[in-house]
Design a protein around this nucleic acid. Structure first.
Lengths: 215, 215
DNA sequence: CTCCATCAGTACCGTACGGTACGGTTCGCC
DNA sequence: GGCGAACCGTACCGTACGGTACTGATGGAG
């Protein structure tokens, strides 16, 4: 398990070796299990069977490690593009419901919650560098998927809206409401994931009532 | 400035002396300015011109101090009850818009953001005690105001909804969308507060399109 | 075989924090 | 005036963390 390593982690051209990816995986596990206080350099080194010196060599700094964790996690989540098939009303609704349910499941994920908590905790100092990173890598991705979907709906004459951002904001708000914040605050999400499908359908129906062309 | 102190802080029956309230005020200032890392016992003692010993005597613990800060801040924010006047459509809309704008302004407040960041940062460990406290003291309050408003609208035949919680969730989502999270992540709210009025109106119009009786 | 780069493991250092203990001072009360 | 309670300021202690330096082992390159 030593010597020069040349194989790189696939995807995103992240420039990380597999070893470094495994280290980041362990770091994410520590973060999810114990929060930011559990994410110490010594702890990561112990959990990943590597030396602290290597951590500093690879990531330069503790903040570098945090940034690498966010980038690494984002590189693993790839949003599938919406197929450019011809949309009818039922198809659009199905796509929207699927998007809404995916959104809820992503936001409720362990790693997502832990990384959001981490970035929020560091938002006060350091100019919210992690926050911007998280927003760029996470939100922008899912926003693009939604934007493409909404645009396709408008092209097909099924949706009517002036500002796509406003329509997306309404969809996001109807789907998520204050759930994300409540989960971030630690509210037990036990069993609530069962209702995500129903919740997604209700939100999409409301969205279509607002922006659909044939009510 | 010493000796037995008997005067108590008004409201909420908090059982805090004025001195202790002033200390909590300074603690909140430190938290707002520098985040959780700046909120050290020594720092609070220095900023408030008190001794660490007194801090531990009054609040018992660092977590006790944090809890007291949340309770103290919540005791200062009192939501005005909606007047039980007869509502017409324009009046209901005005009330809803005022509520929405107040909600945005509260969520965008310095102290609110700092306390939410604090509670979220501690959500991983400690069983999210602070999160539950924050939710109970903050969210429940504003939720009651909204609930009363919605109920008044239904009584007046201006709103139609089956589940009041669901209607409130839709209103909240349309008003806030992902703004709260973005502000928690550190996105610069500079100048955005100017748009709160316009944003509130748009959200309320959408809400009324969904739940209003005469579209 | 020999050199060299990489890495794990550990010891180490400076610092900062939570929490406690102590001396000195002010104030109310008898 | 004297007593006691509350309190400030500071010193102190144990601990834990970020970051660095050193040692020894491993495996590839010439």
């Amino acid at each position: 398990m030593q010597g020069v390593e040349t194989t790189r982690v696939a995807g995103a051209g992240s420039g990380l070796t597999e070893r470094q990816g495994a280290v980041l995986e362990q770091a994410l596990r520590l973060l999810v299990d114990g929060g930011e206080r559990a994410l110490t350099t010594a702890g990561v080194a112990r959990a990943a069977n590597c030396s602290k010196e290597s951590l500093y060599k690879w990531f330069g700094d503790r903040d570098g490690l945090l940034s690498a964790m966010i980038a690494f996690q984002a590189s693993k989540v790839r949003t599938l593009d919406v197929s450019a098939e011809a949309l009818d009303a039922a198809g659009l609704r199905a796509h929207l419901v699927a998007f809404a349910e995916d959104l809820l499941n992503v936001l409720a994920g362990d790693v997502s919650l832990a990384l959001n908590r981490l970035a929020i905790g560091q938002a006060s100092r350091e100019g919210s560098k992690l926050g911007r990173l998280l927003e760029e890598r996470g939100r922008r991705q899912i926003g693009r998927r939604a934007g493409a979907l909404l645009e396709a709906g408008r092209k097909a004459g099924l949706l009517a809206f002036g500002d796509a951002d406003e329509a997306y904001g309404a969809l996001y708000g109807l789907v998520v409401s204050d759930w994300h914040l409540r989960m971030l605050l630690g509210e037990d999400p036990g069993g609530l994931k069962k209702n995500f499908g129903r919740r997604a359908e209700r939100a999409v129906d409301a969205f279509l009532a607002l922006y659909g062309r044939k009510g």
